[in-house]
Design a binder for these strands. Structure first.
Lengths: 150, 150
DNA sequence: TATTGTTATACTCTATAACTATA
DNA sequence: TATAGTTATAGAGTATAACAATA
């Protein structure tokens, strides 16, 4: 009979960075699928939900908070405005305050619900483990370079 | 005096997916910096270290294991071969077995050391928490869609 | 002088589709 | 019919540089 194939030896299994990256790819792909029916992508939802919680936040504040550079924030905000989801009103001569429109608030509500279902699926995968320590560990890793992405 | 700026409210802080993504970006950027002096990128190192641990592994096996599609594995393997880091020897008429050259093994050793230093910096950020539960949680998340990336 | 917003551009990673050759 | 490898191509996300307008 045929020799059983030797299993692949995985020298990366114990690496935090590797497992972090693989888990992130899986979860982002699942989130993208969950949001697609709403016509939204992950980055657009983080913007919508943060604007909902911070009316009149400026583009640069939003970008700093989400780790999105100004150069990449501009087309994102322009897209949301063109779709009638946010209003951009000048706060001074150079800053725009971002606020959800009624349509944007309604879509944010639907997106928030979709995100909650998606999150619950993954939280369940942790089994007995509560998500708190995981989130704390991830926040600690992020804090090593909090300015990454600004 | 000026009003203190109201702090930004973060509705995403409790989301596993968001923290996972942000932590992954920070850690991948740091890894890329740690590997740049060796002329390697993160994806190339995962390939080198996995080939080192699995001599004569085929491209498709390697890609399945690392979550890299065949279409993206081809140029990666071609680059490593062109740099003299791996040998590609036919196992049958259609598969290539990948093995490190002496230069590839030497570079893999240096890369492994650089990765260990990088990993230790991040493990230290966890403070009292041992990395085991974090890695287990990340592996559980990945297991929700283990075929992602094949 | 520093900040905000914008545009242009490039690089990396990931993805699908189509093709050839071989099992 | 399925698998291995390749090529071409497209879509996101992230990055820098340069610019105009404003603080």
């Amino acid at each position: 009979m045929a020799d059983p194939l030797p299993p692949v030896v995985d020298p990366l299994a114990g690496l935090i960075g590797y497992q972090l990256r693989r888990a992130s790819v899986v979860m982002m792909a699942d989130l993208a699928e969950a949001l697609a029916p709403h016509g939204l992508r992950p980055g657009e939802v983080t913007a919508l939900l943060t604007i909902a919680a911070n009316p009149a936040i400026t583009q640069s504040e939003l970008g700093r908070h989400l780790g999105i550079k100004r150069a990449n924030m501009a087309p994102l905000a322009a897209t949301l405005a063109a779709r009638g989801l946010i209003d951009r009103t000048p706060v001074d001569g150079r800053s725009h305050g971002l606020t959800l429109t009624a349509a944007g608030a309604a879509l944010a509500d639907r997106a928030r619900a979709a995100v909650a279902v998606h999150e619950a699926r993954f939280a369940a995968a942790l089994g007995d483990q509560p998500p708190g320590p995981l989130i704390a560990a991830l926040a600690a890793i992020r804090a090593i370079d909090p300015d990454r992405g600004e």
